[in-house]
Every structure is written in C-alpha cells, then in structure tokens.
Design a protein around this nucleic acid. Sequence first.
DNA 1: CGCGTTCACTTAACATGTTAAGTATCTCCA
DNA 2: TGGAGATACTTAACATGTTAAGTGAACGCG
Lengths: 172, 172
Amino acid sequence: MAKRPADPANGSEPAARQVPMRDFSRSLPMSLLRAREAVMRQFRPKLREHGLTEQQWRILRALAAIEAAEVTELARTAFLLGPSLSRILRDLEARNLIERRTAKADQRRSMVSISKEGVKLMAAVAPSSEAIYAEITQRFGARKLAELQEMLGQLELCLASTDASDEVTDET
Amino acid sequence: MAKRPADPANGSEPAARQVPMRDFSRSLPMSLLRAREAVMRQFRPKLREHGLTEQQWRILRALAAIEAAEVTELARTAFLLGPSLSRILRDLEARNLIERRTAKADQRRSMVSISKEGVKLMAAVAPSSEAIYAEITQRFGARKLAELQEMLGQLELCLASTDASDEVTDET
DNA sequence: CGCGTTCACTTAACATGTTAAGTATCTCCA
DNA sequence: TGGAGATACTTAACATGTTAAGTGAACGCG
C-alpha cells in the first residue's frame, strides 16, 4: 500500500524492499514462461547458427515427419497461428526449404512439403538439437521430465474445455 | 521439382523416415508452450477488455508492489527484455499509467513508478484476474499446482548454470 | 585532467504473436 | 442454379521477442 512517488528531496533510496512481489513472480504464467525460456535459451544459439528461428525449426520438424500437409493442419501441429505461419511459409519457400502446391480437389487448400534442401538442413541441425535435448534430460532427470510433461499435459487438458466450443481433440 | 508423387488425396501417411527425431509435439519446449498458452488464453480476454496486454499487465503488477524501480530492475522482475520494456514504458507513460523520473545520483538511471491512474486500473482488473486464477487452481488442484511450479522452478534452476558460468564461447 | 571503458538505457531492424478484415473457393439448399 | 454462408488462407495493423547498434552519463586509471 501507500505507493508514493518517493519524494525527490532525498538522497539514496534504491532498494525499496528485499521481498517485493514474490506473489507475482510465482504466478503460474510466469513460472511457465521462465521455464520455457530457460529451455529455449539452450537451443536458440545453435538454431541461429543455421539461420533458423525457433518457429521455422518447428515447421521443418513438423514437415519432416509427413509427406505433405495443409496449412491449417500444419498450424495445429506446429502450434502457430495462421497469420504467423503464412508469413513464415512465404519466407521458407523463398529460401527453397519447403514447397507448396495447391490441392487439385480443393483450390483453396495449399499442400506444403519439405524440400530436399530442407531435409538437408534438418540433417545438419538435428544432431546438435538432439544432443542439447539429451543434456537437458540428463540434468533434470528423465523420470522427472516425463512427470513434468505429464502434468503439463493435464494442465492443458483441464483448461481446454473452458473456451473451446465443442472441439474433439483426438490426438495420439 | 517433384520430390515425390504425393497424391493430393491421401489423408494419412505416417511415413516419417527421413531424419529420426523425437515426435516434436511431445518435446519439452512444445509442452511448455502449449501449457502456457492454455493458461494465458484464460486471462487475455479480460485484460483486453481493459486495453491491456499481458506484458503491460505484468509491468503494472510489478510496479504496484514497490515504490519505484529502475528500468533494468523492472525488466528482470517482469521478465522482459530491455527493448520491449523500453517501448512499453513509453506507451504506458503516454497513457498516464506510470511515471518516470531520472535519478538524481545517476543521470543514466530512470526511476519508474505506477501512477494514480495505474493503481486505479489495477484495482479494476485485479478481482477478475484473481478469480480466473482461482478457477484454474480449483480445476487443476492446488496441491498439484504447487507441485508443478516446484518442478518448473527446478528445471529453470538446473539449466541456469549452463549459460552463466559455463563458458568458452570465444569463437566469435 | 583526459580518455577509453563500462553502464543504463534507447533505437533500429527483423521475426513472430494476436486480432480483425479481406479474398478466393467451395457447399448447400431453396 | 445461384446466391448466402462456410471454409482456407492471406493481409493488415499493432504489440512484443530478439539481437545489434547507438547515445549519453558515470568510472577508472594513467
């Protein structure tokens, strides 16, 4: 309470409290944000070496596992919003890392697939990526990691019904 | 150039023989991303009603708990990068939600504090925010939530040492 | 003093997140 | 069959993430 502009007549009063807002810093969104950032900080430098952003890498990985996918399907898989994906695909296509064709049966749909170049790039990055993931797994503990991901999945699930209209998420 | 026939009519073809990688939808970064998104999806609409983004709300919350803070300190607390914070502070100041003064002892530093308007806005949003958080807690379970956050904290901690003390990146 | 260094921010430039609006295509049914 | 509505993207506009460079002030040390 009583938050004042800290009167300008005084000399030094840098630190207000030692325990400012544990409350805020311990909120669930912040915990998730910091944890994810800690993880991504391990990967980003290596991806950057290959001229890839995190999202571009997600897309390539998603495409490498399938023959081809519609844009909407790819968005769901790579967990990207349509507009973001649209832009990224345009750039990846310009770099010849992916290929795009409109479906014959439905001219609205665009089938996206990874190119030879894209596969080559993936092959170059994958080993480092796997090594980093293995390092993280080892540091944190494989069992604990599985446990954590199980809880994250449950959290996601128990919040999904709130805003979802009536979607049936039939995943693996 | 025609990578493969890839008939446009096929619906499911779990090939995935190119580069052997984990199913990336189960990777840790994706799990964290999806979980966080599921949580934030609960908050965003309410914040938006008040013309606030998630980051702006973080800053106001951080400022509400202290008298004033330097920009760098605030960045650390709200978990924002300097440039992002710089922009947001400029906007929040234009909306009279915060106040800024340069420190007397060190002209480089800028002391930021929340304004009366900002406090008023927080008072308007906080109840809804708390209600949403309570709902999440109830759905997921308070004990489980605490457990999850404990694990997230441990994950963050066990990865923190990697980029801080561990070094030898003198290849630049 | 003087000058190079560090520090605290700010700008710049590019990429993505987020919401709303636009465009082309397809579906359905009166 | 043709026109309203739904669908699959794409664009647009604004806000933030991310890295690099810039600016001005404080420091250190000869």
